[in-house]
Design a protein around this nucleic acid. Structure first.
Lengths: 162, 162
DNA sequence: CATTTTTATGTAATCAATTACGTAAGTAGT
DNA sequence: ACTACTTACGTAATTGATTACATAAAAATG
């Protein structure tokens, strides 16, 4: 048990980040292993567009639970790679809709094969864990969203015993 | 169940990051609530120095499981705030040892009171969860560190059925 | 003791997200 | 139709970490 583990929730920020980086790097290696020019960080956006055919920036951001500048940045990379395209929305001139490009659709079967393999392996890893990380994250997120930390804190410790 | 949750491990990177940001922000609010000039991101380093009295950059980095530039950066902030000091190590001229300053020691009792309250509340939150996030993280880290993802991937899927 | 290797630190550039801010287009109330 | 508000998007700056690289000191090797 290292220091951070002992401290528990006081300090898991960097731990979470580090773990996420490791996961990303693992994914990156797999794409490279198959000689496919694709990045793990593109996955959620690309996959979302595969399902949804066409969607605006804000809608995507909300669904993927990131901010809209994050989507814009990732979309820029994917457009540069020619994997997605974008066009002004006809009905609402404020909106710019993203969609998978022809090239993106051509790459899709290859990606899907890789994703399925990754999915299978990750499932195996997750199922072996005694504690399910995904469920734990979901639960913690819900707890946090439900009520602000400070609010909870004040209630928990009664009136501020300054 | 949103998209990312369905995708499971393929995409929890940004989720983890976001959660960690929420936790940090919560901590920040608590310090502010008590009118204390202290940041959650300083905690691990500061706390480590409280326990260890004096330590070099690398030693701290290894214990806190972050890279040494991260320690240097945080140490710079803490030195600027006057909460820690540093001095060249007499025995080993390569090393620069960090330690809590007088001002840091004066602030300590206040911080400890706050930490204890945070710890209690976090324990309550964690204990209420069905899935223990900390244990899950630990377990996942161990799995990842044990063997590289690509290595595991290749073994899992047999010889590359390119 | 000279040479090579390793260790400790520091700096710069990068990364992937964020927040803050600005603009343009739609929507509602009057 | 005018004004105020809200929504969608874009850009810039910031954050908190990383990797890559450089230097100096210590340790190991011959």
């Amino acid at each position: 048990m290292d220091l951070i583990s002992e401290l528990g929730p006081l300090a898991f920020g960097s731990r979470l980040k580090r773990l996420s980086d490791m996961v990303m790097k693992g994914g990156q290696e797999v794409y490279r292993h198959y000689g496919v020019d694709f990045e793990p960080k593109w996955f959620t956006l690309f996959y979302f567009l595969v399902q949804r055919e066409e969607a605006g920036i804000m809608e995507i951001a909300e669904n993927l639970k990131v901010t809209h500048p994050a989507i814009i940045q990732t979309a820029k990379e994917l457009e540069k790679k020619g994997l997605i395209t974008s066009k002004k929305c006809a009905e609402d001139a404020r909106k710019r809709n993203l969609q998978i490009s022809k090239k993106g659709k051509e790459l899709l079967p290859t990606l899907q094969k890789i994703w399925e393999e990754i999915r299978l392996m990750n499932k195996e890893i997750i199922d072996k864990q005694e504690h399910n990380l995904l469920s734990a994250i979901k639960e913690m997120e819900d707890t946090w969203l439900e009520k602000s930390y400070l609010q909870r804190f004040i209630e928990f410790h009664g009136t501020t015993a300054k």
